[in-house]
Design a protein around this nucleic acid. Structure first.
Lengths: 126, 126
DNA sequence: GTTGTAATTTCCGTATGGGTTAATTATCTA
DNA sequence: TAGATAATTAACCCATACGGAAATTACAAC
Protein backbone atom coordinates (compact mmCIF):
# COMPACT_ATOMS: atom_id res chain seq x y z
CA UNK A 1 0.00 0.00 0.00
CA UNK A 2 2.69 2.51 0.90
CA UNK A 3 4.93 0.80 -1.62
CA UNK A 4 4.69 3.55 -4.17
CA UNK A 5 5.27 6.26 -1.62
CA UNK A 6 8.34 4.47 -0.30
CA UNK A 7 9.71 3.93 -3.78
CA UNK A 8 9.32 7.62 -4.50
CA UNK A 9 10.99 8.52 -1.22
CA UNK A 10 13.91 6.21 -1.98
CA UNK A 11 14.22 7.74 -5.41
CA UNK A 12 14.24 11.25 -3.96
CA UNK A 13 16.95 10.13 -1.51
CA UNK A 14 19.01 8.95 -4.45
CA UNK A 15 18.26 12.00 -6.59
CA UNK A 16 19.15 14.54 -3.90
CA UNK A 17 22.27 12.57 -2.93
CA UNK A 18 23.39 12.63 -6.56
CA UNK A 19 22.79 16.39 -6.71
CA UNK A 20 24.68 17.03 -3.46
CA UNK A 21 28.01 17.37 -5.25
CA UNK A 22 29.13 20.36 -7.25
CA UNK A 23 31.13 18.29 -9.73
CA UNK A 24 28.04 16.27 -10.57
CA UNK A 25 25.89 19.40 -10.86
CA UNK A 26 28.52 20.91 -13.18
CA UNK A 27 28.34 17.77 -15.32
CA UNK A 28 24.57 18.14 -15.56
CA UNK A 29 24.96 21.81 -16.50
CA UNK A 30 27.39 20.81 -19.24
CA UNK A 31 24.99 18.16 -20.52
CA UNK A 32 22.20 20.72 -20.64
CA UNK A 33 24.12 22.20 -23.59
CA UNK A 34 24.64 18.97 -25.54
CA UNK A 35 25.58 15.37 -25.06
CA UNK A 36 29.24 14.65 -24.33
CA UNK A 37 31.70 11.84 -23.82
CA UNK A 38 33.38 11.02 -20.53
CA UNK A 39 36.64 12.65 -21.59
CA UNK A 40 34.85 15.79 -22.70
CA UNK A 41 33.03 15.93 -19.40
CA UNK A 42 36.25 15.37 -17.47
CA UNK A 43 38.25 18.10 -19.24
CA UNK A 44 37.26 21.07 -17.03
CA UNK A 45 38.08 19.30 -13.77
CA UNK A 46 41.32 18.92 -11.83
CA UNK A 47 40.47 15.32 -11.12
CA UNK A 48 41.50 11.98 -12.57
CA UNK A 49 39.30 10.28 -15.12
CA UNK A 50 38.23 7.43 -12.82
CA UNK A 51 36.75 9.95 -10.41
CA UNK A 52 34.65 11.49 -13.18
CA UNK A 53 33.71 8.02 -14.38
CA UNK A 54 32.36 7.28 -10.92
CA UNK A 55 30.43 10.55 -10.76
CA UNK A 56 28.85 9.68 -14.09
CA UNK A 57 27.91 6.28 -12.75
CA UNK A 58 26.19 7.91 -9.79
CA UNK A 59 24.25 10.24 -12.10
CA UNK A 60 23.25 7.34 -14.33
CA UNK A 61 22.19 5.16 -11.40
CA UNK A 62 20.08 8.06 -10.14
CA UNK A 63 18.42 8.33 -13.54
CA UNK A 64 19.67 11.86 -14.12
CA UNK A 65 21.51 10.91 -17.30
CA UNK A 66 21.36 8.14 -19.88
CA UNK A 67 24.19 6.75 -21.93
CA UNK A 68 24.58 5.21 -25.36
CA UNK A 69 27.47 3.59 -27.13
CA UNK A 70 29.45 4.79 -30.12
CA UNK A 71 32.58 2.70 -30.73
CA UNK A 72 34.81 3.20 -27.65
CA UNK A 73 32.83 6.26 -26.66
CA UNK A 74 29.99 6.30 -24.17
CA UNK A 75 28.17 9.56 -24.83
CA UNK A 76 26.04 10.86 -21.98
CA UNK A 77 22.92 12.96 -22.22
CA UNK A 78 20.60 14.54 -19.73
CA UNK A 79 17.43 12.71 -18.64
CA UNK A 80 15.15 15.44 -17.34
CA UNK A 81 12.49 13.42 -15.48
CA UNK A 82 14.26 13.33 -12.11
CA UNK A 83 15.00 17.03 -12.35
CA UNK A 84 11.33 17.67 -13.00
CA UNK A 85 10.53 15.66 -9.88
CA UNK A 86 12.88 17.85 -7.87
CA UNK A 87 11.19 20.98 -9.21
CA UNK A 88 7.78 19.55 -8.33
CA UNK A 89 8.95 18.56 -4.86
CA UNK A 90 10.35 22.00 -4.08
CA UNK A 91 7.24 23.63 -5.48
CA UNK A 92 5.21 22.03 -2.69
CA UNK A 93 6.73 24.69 -0.45
CA UNK A 94 6.18 27.61 -2.78
CA UNK A 95 3.16 28.89 -0.85
CA UNK A 96 5.36 29.26 2.22
CA UNK A 97 7.89 31.56 0.65
CA UNK A 98 5.18 33.33 -1.35
CA UNK A 99 3.24 33.92 1.87
CA UNK A 100 6.29 35.50 3.36
CA UNK A 101 6.66 37.89 0.47
CA UNK A 102 2.96 38.66 0.74
CA UNK A 103 3.37 39.51 4.40
CA UNK A 104 6.38 41.66 3.61
CA UNK A 105 4.38 43.39 0.92
CA UNK A 106 1.53 44.04 3.36
CA UNK A 107 3.98 45.43 5.89
CA UNK A 108 5.43 47.76 3.32
CA UNK A 109 1.96 48.93 2.29
CA UNK A 110 1.09 49.56 5.91
CA UNK A 111 4.27 51.53 6.45
CA UNK A 112 3.62 53.54 3.33
CA UNK A 113 0.12 54.43 4.57
CA UNK A 114 1.39 55.30 8.05
CA UNK A 115 4.14 57.45 6.63
CA UNK A 116 1.57 59.35 4.61
CA UNK A 117 -0.54 59.99 7.71
CA UNK A 118 2.42 60.93 9.87
CA UNK A 119 4.09 63.20 7.34
CA UNK A 120 1.65 63.96 4.54
CA UNK A 121 3.65 66.91 3.24
CA UNK A 122 6.91 65.35 2.02
CA UNK A 123 9.00 62.26 1.53
CA UNK A 124 10.25 61.80 5.05
CA UNK A 125 11.56 58.24 4.77
CA UNK A 126 14.97 57.54 6.39
CA UNK B 1 35.87 36.73 -8.15
CA UNK B 2 34.42 33.24 -8.20
CA UNK B 3 33.97 33.55 -4.44
CA UNK B 4 30.25 34.04 -4.63
CA UNK B 5 29.76 31.23 -7.09
CA UNK B 6 31.76 28.88 -4.90
CA UNK B 7 29.85 29.88 -1.80
CA UNK B 8 26.60 29.20 -3.60
CA UNK B 9 27.89 25.86 -4.82
CA UNK B 10 28.93 24.87 -1.30
CA UNK B 11 25.53 25.91 -0.01
CA UNK B 12 23.79 23.84 -2.67
CA UNK B 13 25.99 20.88 -1.70
CA UNK B 14 24.84 21.30 1.88
CA UNK B 15 21.19 21.89 0.96
CA UNK B 16 20.93 18.85 -1.30
CA UNK B 17 22.79 16.68 1.20
CA UNK B 18 20.33 17.72 3.91
CA UNK B 19 17.41 16.89 1.61
CA UNK B 20 18.85 13.47 0.67
CA UNK B 21 17.18 11.76 3.60
CA UNK B 22 13.50 10.88 3.85
CA UNK B 23 13.36 11.43 7.62
CA UNK B 24 14.60 14.97 7.18
CA UNK B 25 12.20 15.62 4.30
CA UNK B 26 9.37 14.31 6.47
CA UNK B 27 10.41 16.73 9.21
CA UNK B 28 10.27 19.60 6.72
CA UNK B 29 6.83 18.47 5.56
CA UNK B 30 5.65 18.43 9.17
CA UNK B 31 7.05 21.91 9.74
CA UNK B 32 5.24 23.16 6.66
CA UNK B 33 2.06 22.74 8.74
CA UNK B 34 3.25 24.55 11.87
CA UNK B 35 6.24 24.91 14.11
CA UNK B 36 6.96 21.99 16.43
CA UNK B 37 9.26 20.88 19.23
CA UNK B 38 11.87 18.14 18.91
CA UNK B 39 9.69 15.61 20.73
CA UNK B 40 6.71 16.42 18.53
CA UNK B 41 8.86 16.00 15.44
CA UNK B 42 10.25 12.72 16.74
CA UNK B 43 6.88 11.15 17.56
CA UNK B 44 6.09 9.64 14.13
CA UNK B 45 9.47 7.91 13.78
CA UNK B 46 10.73 4.53 14.99
CA UNK B 47 14.01 6.10 15.98
CA UNK B 48 15.59 7.34 19.20
CA UNK B 49 15.47 11.01 20.11
CA UNK B 50 19.21 11.63 19.61
CA UNK B 51 18.91 10.53 15.99
CA UNK B 52 16.14 13.07 15.40
CA UNK B 53 18.12 15.69 17.27
CA UNK B 54 20.99 15.16 14.82
CA UNK B 55 18.70 15.35 11.82
CA UNK B 56 17.37 18.65 13.13
CA UNK B 57 20.91 19.89 13.58
CA UNK B 58 21.67 19.04 9.96
CA UNK B 59 18.57 20.90 8.77
CA UNK B 60 19.43 23.92 10.91
CA UNK B 61 23.06 23.97 9.75
CA UNK B 62 21.80 23.84 6.17
CA UNK B 63 19.54 26.82 6.84
CA UNK B 64 16.38 24.88 6.10
CA UNK B 65 14.95 25.50 9.56
CA UNK B 66 15.42 28.02 12.36
CA UNK B 67 14.96 27.44 16.07
CA UNK B 68 13.91 29.52 19.02
CA UNK B 69 13.79 28.88 22.74
CA UNK B 70 10.77 28.55 25.00
CA UNK B 71 11.72 27.25 28.46
CA UNK B 72 13.13 23.73 27.94
CA UNK B 73 11.60 23.59 24.49
CA UNK B 74 13.41 24.39 21.27
CA UNK B 75 10.64 24.93 18.74
CA UNK B 76 11.62 24.55 15.08
CA UNK B 77 10.12 26.31 12.12
CA UNK B 78 10.68 26.18 8.41
CA UNK B 79 13.01 28.69 6.73
CA UNK B 80 11.94 28.72 3.09
CA UNK B 81 14.88 30.50 1.44
CA UNK B 82 16.96 27.41 0.75
CA UNK B 83 13.92 25.60 -0.61
CA UNK B 84 13.29 28.52 -2.94
CA UNK B 85 16.90 28.20 -4.12
CA UNK B 86 16.33 24.54 -4.89
CA UNK B 87 13.23 25.38 -6.89
CA UNK B 88 15.14 28.04 -8.80
CA UNK B 89 18.03 25.67 -9.45
CA UNK B 90 15.79 22.92 -10.80
CA UNK B 91 13.90 25.43 -12.89
CA UNK B 92 17.09 26.09 -14.89
CA UNK B 93 16.37 22.77 -16.58
CA UNK B 94 12.70 23.35 -17.19
CA UNK B 95 13.19 24.16 -20.87
CA UNK B 96 14.69 20.72 -21.36
CA UNK B 97 11.73 18.78 -20.10
CA UNK B 98 9.32 21.28 -21.66
CA UNK B 99 11.09 20.84 -24.99
CA UNK B 100 10.58 17.14 -24.70
CA UNK B 101 6.88 17.56 -24.13
CA UNK B 102 6.77 19.96 -27.06
CA UNK B 103 8.40 17.39 -29.29
CA UNK B 104 5.97 14.75 -28.05
CA UNK B 105 3.12 17.14 -28.76
CA UNK B 106 4.42 17.79 -32.27
CA UNK B 107 4.69 14.05 -32.86
CA UNK B 108 1.13 13.52 -31.75
CA UNK B 109 -0.08 16.35 -33.98
CA UNK B 110 1.76 14.85 -36.91
CA UNK B 111 0.25 11.45 -36.24
CA UNK B 112 -3.16 12.98 -35.95
CA UNK B 113 -2.73 14.68 -39.34
CA UNK B 114 -1.41 11.53 -40.95
CA UNK B 115 -4.26 9.50 -39.55
CA UNK B 116 -6.70 11.97 -41.06
CA UNK B 117 -5.08 11.71 -44.47
CA UNK B 118 -4.84 7.96 -44.38
CA UNK B 119 -8.37 7.35 -43.17
CA UNK B 120 -10.37 10.54 -43.58
CA UNK B 121 -13.74 8.82 -43.27
CA UNK B 122 -13.76 7.53 -39.71
CA UNK B 123 -12.03 7.29 -36.36
CA UNK B 124 -9.75 4.41 -37.08
CA UNK B 125 -7.38 4.83 -34.14
CA UNK B 126 -6.57 1.54 -32.32
C1' DG C 1 48.03 -9.49 -33.43
C1' DT C 2 49.95 -5.15 -31.80
C1' DT C 3 49.32 -0.59 -30.67
C1' DG C 4 46.53 3.37 -29.24
C1' DT C 5 42.52 5.53 -27.28
C1' DA C 6 38.25 5.52 -24.25
C1' DA C 7 36.48 4.17 -20.24
C1' DT C 8 35.79 1.18 -16.24
C1' DT C 9 37.02 -1.65 -12.32
C1' DT C 10 39.66 -2.78 -8.29
C1' DC C 11 41.99 -1.66 -4.22
C1' DC C 12 43.18 1.49 -0.87
C1' DG C 13 43.02 5.54 2.66
C1' DT C 14 40.40 8.81 4.85
C1' DA C 15 36.21 11.18 6.03
C1' DT C 16 31.41 11.48 6.81
C1' DG C 17 26.58 9.68 7.68
C1' DG C 18 23.14 7.53 10.33
C1' DG C 19 21.97 4.92 14.07
C1' DT C 20 22.54 3.15 19.09
C1' DT C 21 23.11 3.72 24.40
C1' DA C 22 24.65 6.30 28.26
C1' DA C 23 25.77 10.55 30.23
C1' DT C 24 25.02 15.51 30.50
C1' DT C 25 22.92 20.15 30.24
C1' DA C 26 19.02 23.28 30.69
C1' DT C 27 14.81 24.61 32.50
C1' DC C 28 10.40 24.22 35.06
C1' DT C 29 7.91 22.74 39.32
C1' DA C 30 7.04 21.16 43.87
C1' DT D 1 17.00 21.78 46.95
C1' DA D 2 15.19 17.68 44.64
C1' DG D 3 12.89 15.71 40.92
C1' DA D 4 10.77 15.69 36.30
C1' DT D 5 10.85 16.91 31.46
C1' DA D 6 13.20 18.51 27.03
C1' DA D 7 16.99 18.18 24.43
C1' DT D 8 21.90 17.67 23.39
C1' DT D 9 26.47 15.65 23.61
C1' DA D 10 29.77 11.81 23.83
C1' DA D 11 31.40 7.46 22.58
C1' DC D 12 30.89 3.92 19.61
C1' DC D 13 29.60 0.78 15.39
C1' DC D 14 28.95 0.04 10.75
C1' DA D 15 28.27 1.46 6.07
C1' DT D 16 28.93 4.48 2.42
C1' DA D 17 31.18 8.60 -0.16
C1' DC D 18 35.09 10.65 -2.51
C1' DG D 19 39.49 10.66 -4.22
C1' DG D 20 44.02 8.52 -6.00
C1' DA D 21 46.91 4.88 -8.42
C1' DA D 22 47.22 0.70 -10.90
C1' DA D 23 45.19 -2.81 -13.56
C1' DT D 24 41.70 -4.19 -16.89
C1' DT D 25 38.19 -4.12 -20.58
C1' DA D 26 36.36 -2.55 -25.13
C1' DC D 27 36.96 -1.06 -29.46
C1' DA D 28 39.54 0.89 -33.71
C1' DA D 29 43.32 1.27 -36.81
C1' DC D 30 47.16 -0.43 -38.71
Amino acid sequence: MTVTATMEEDRLDETFAALANSTRRAILARLAQSEATVNELAAPFAMQLPAISKHIKVLEQAGLIVRSRNAQFRPCRLAPDRLAEVATWADQYRSIWDDRFDRLDQQLSRRRRNAQHAAPKGTNDR
